[in-house]
């Protein structure tokens, strides 16, 4: 930046990467970030003494987990299956709701701005509320159990899938739609024949991807009573039965890793 006057034969011997103004702006940004972090840390109601012996507590907890209580394995198979069912059924429900909502929220397929706004509103609300918060709501409605879990999974997934599908719809090739419209097809037919086939790979991909996320999410639904392995895990933790906890954690680890693998393989085959 500051190269100074250049007379022939002699070259400037100072060079700065940033001009003074740029340096000031960069320093201010850095200070803003650091101060926000410090302000946050100082204002949190934290008893730092607990932090100091955390590693001892953590080590203690780990030693209590070993050896894992393998005899418990039989009792967790059913809850584990329930967890997978909740994730799968929740994904199927959200699949059915997300597709029409996506067509409503895509600018090129929505009937008018009001329907577009309504579609977007539902998608944004769905995504803003975490699965476990949805679970609180549905436990209050349906009572504790898998039903609440399925709806919690479904309601959180709608926004995720709807958003991605709507984006795919907005990128659909206009030419095809025009060509089908030119044959005198009705609006619904245009959607079904012109748009849907083009976004189908995205829909499959998104659904499978979300299913794999949902497996992970459904492992904790039980913490608020919405079914699955979380119920057993939560009660074992609260009863300090650490060897049982260890078995469940290993089971969760296996299920999540296997589902991630299945999902990745399936998506690779589609796209």
């Amino acid at each position: 930046m500051n190269t100074g006057a250049q007379s022939s034969g002699s070259y400037p011997d100072i060079w700065r990467r940033f001009s003074p103004a740029e340096s000031v702006v960069r320093t201010l940004w850095l200070m803003l970030i650091v101060f926000t972090a410090i302000w946050s840390l100082r204002n949190l109601d934290i008893t730092w003494e607990y932090f100091l012996d955390a590693h001892i507590q953590a080590g203690d907890l780990l030693t209590r987990m070993f050896p894992p209580d393998w005899g418990h394995t039989g009792q967790i198979l059913d809850p584990l299956l329930e967890t997978i069912h909740i994730a799968t059924l929740g994904t199927i429900v959200s699949f059915a709701i997300a597709i029409p909502l996506a067509f409503l929220s895509a600018r090129n397929t929505t009937p008018n701005w009001l329907t577009w706004f309504i579609g977007r509103f539902f998608l944004v609300s769905s995504r803003s509320i975490n699965t476990i918060v949805w679970a609180l709501v549905f436990v209050a409605i349906f009572g504790p159990g898998a039903m609440a879990g399925i709806w919690a999974i479904a309601f959180r997934s709608i926004g995720f899938m709807g958003k991605l599908i709507a984006e795919a719809i907005e990128e659909v090739d206009e030419g095809t739609i025009e060509a089908i419209e030119a044959t005198g097809a009705s609006r619904l037919k245009v959607l079904l024949i012109g748009v849907l086939p083009q976004v189908m790979p995205v829909i499959y991909g998104t659904t499978i991807y979300r299913w794999d996320i949902n497996i992970r999410e459904s492992t904790v639904l039980g913490f608020v009573g919405a079914g699955g392995i979380g119920i057993e895990l939560y009660s074992s933790i609260n009863l300090f039965r650490w060897p049982e906890v260890a078995v469940m954690l290993i089971a969760v680890l296996l299920v999540v890793i296997v589902s991630e693998f299945v999902s990745a393989t399936a998506r690779q085959k589609i796209t």
Binding site: L44, D45, I46, T47, W48, Y50, F51, A54, Q57, A58, L61, I132, R216, E217, T219, V220, F223, L233, Y234, I237, L249, V252, L253, V256, I257
Partner: peptide
């Protein structure tokens, strides 16, 4: 990385609650 990404945040949170007690420190960790 794989280990900590496999477990849901809420599972990790409950362990920190057991280790450092209720409150924002567990959430922060």
């Amino acid at each position: 990385i794989v280990l900590s990404r496999t477990f849901h945040e809420v599972i990790i949170a409950i362990f920190f609650v057991k280790i450092v007690g209720f409150g924002p420190l567990a959430g922060l960790l």
